[in-house]
Design a binder for these strands. Structure first.
Length: 380
DNA sequence: AACTCGGGGAT
DNA sequence: ATCCCAGAGTT
């Protein structure tokens, strides 16, 4: 880092100034009502890679359904995921249940009160352990998230790449030196609050009260920090999706595998195709080619490449396109419609009427497909 | 150390 | 479009 470590006097002045600002400016958030470790824990897990505004409603519903560690440990997984539906990173929800069971079995039902104990819980890493330890138990542990790294990198002129894991120790050392032993919980939350509301990514400079402590402001280099290497853009993947209806007007849904992306969630059958094939279908089977066909007039033509082997007669047109971006993938999905007169059930499949869709846990991409299909076929 | 894992809001 | 968000687990 470019700046020297602060002396005792500067550290004390910073703590006082920061905590004063925090107590006057902190947002009134539901999980700040008290420092109960269960509430802090749930909120911190929800807040991982997720904005405050998004979390608030989920937090209220979660606390209503699972108010205690015990209720979470005994939670039905489907119900748990239903509460989490739409929030993303679903392993967070599954790990919560695992950790709640750990608390029941390894800690006699009482939330662990040491950093090591907290850190041993599934889904709790260095950041969350530090947050709970400091906020709920007053331990002088840093809580290093994206906000804190941005703020500290500006205050001290940290030039190392914050995207690298090895840079973590630099922030850890700085924070252990400047953290308040009187009120580490508020100190950590204050630093995050500064990052979220004042020293934002696009902020040109710090407010006056913070400037005396800021290396970047002093050198007019606010836009140089934090240093962060770029991530690769999501890889394109192409799918054909099949909306398949049986004689009972039910739709076929498939449950994803137990591990990996969108684990155990339900979706219309998907078949990955080469980008060239995808474009062929998109152009040759346009809606315009068969405008006269309603859902009642299924074409005799079949689609050999689409879910081959299933006794389905496909309509020779597509029902629009959906794209969905994940952290590392971009899905392109072209939607088709077909009917079956035969009773069949693929592995991991389920037939369900549309009124009951809300009983299952659908990822956003599946919700988009449902919406696109209904929009396209109902207007014609 | 690199990759996997969701979704959305701000710019 | 791009960034990035109160990150953690796996390989």
């Amino acid at each position: 880092m470019k700046s020297k470590m602060w002396d005792e006097q500067t550290i004390h002045a910073f703590q006082t100034t920061l905590l004063d600002w925090y107590h006057q400016n902190k947002r009134n958030l539901p999980w700040r009502a008290d420092t109960n470790p269960y509430k802090v824990w749930i909120s911190e897990i929800m807040l991982q890679q997720t904005r405050v505004d998004t979390v608030i409603d989920y937090y209220y519903r979660f606390m209503e359904e699972f108010p205690t560690v015990k209720s979470l440990a005994e939670a039905n997984e489907e119900k748990l995921l239903k509460v989490w539906e739409g929030l993303g990173y679903y392993s967070r929800a599954r790990n919560l249940k695992v950790a709640a069971t750990q608390i029941q079995e390894d800690f006699n039902g009482e939330f662990p009160q040491t950093v090591e104990g907290i850190r041993s819980l599934k889904g709790i890493g260095p950041y969350t352990a530090g947050a709970i330890a400091s906020i709920s138990f007053g331990l002088p542990e840093p809580a290093i998230d994206g906000n804190v790294m941005r703020v500290i990198s500006r205050l001290f002129g940290v030039e190392e790449d914050i995207a690298k894991a090895s840079t973590y120790k630099i922030f850890d050392q700085i924070l252990r030196a400047i953290i308040s032993y009187e009120n580490p919980g508020d100190m950590n939350q204050a630093l995050m609050e500064v990052g979220a509301t004042v020293s934002t990514p696009a902020a040109k400079e710090c407010p006056e009260w913070l400037k005396p402590f800021c290396y970047a402001c002093a050198h007019d280099e606010h836009d140089k920090f934090p240093v962060k290497s770029k991530k690769a853009k999501p890889k394109d993947v192409y799918y054909l999706a099949g909306v398949i209806e049986n004689k009972e007007h039910e739709h076929l849904l498939i449950q994803r595998p137990e591990n990996g992306l969108l684990a155990k969630m339900w979706h219309y059958p998907l078949e990955e195709v080469e980008p060239r094939k995808y474009q062929e279908f998109k152009q040759l089977w346009q809606k315009e080619d068969s405008k006269q066909l309603s859902l009642d007039l299924v074409a005799e033509d079949t689609v050999p490449e689409l879910f081959s082997g299933w006794p389905v007669v496909w309509q020779k047109r597509h029902f629009g396109e959906v794209t969905h971006v994940f952290s590392h993938l971009k899905w392109h999905i072209l939607i088709f419609y077909g009917r079956t007169q035969t009773e069949f059930l693929p592995e991991h499949g389920k037939w369900l009427d549309e009124q009951s869709f809300s009983d299952l846990v659908f990822p956003k991409v599946q919700q988009k497909i449902v919406q696109q299909f209904n929009k396209t076929h109902k207007v014609e």
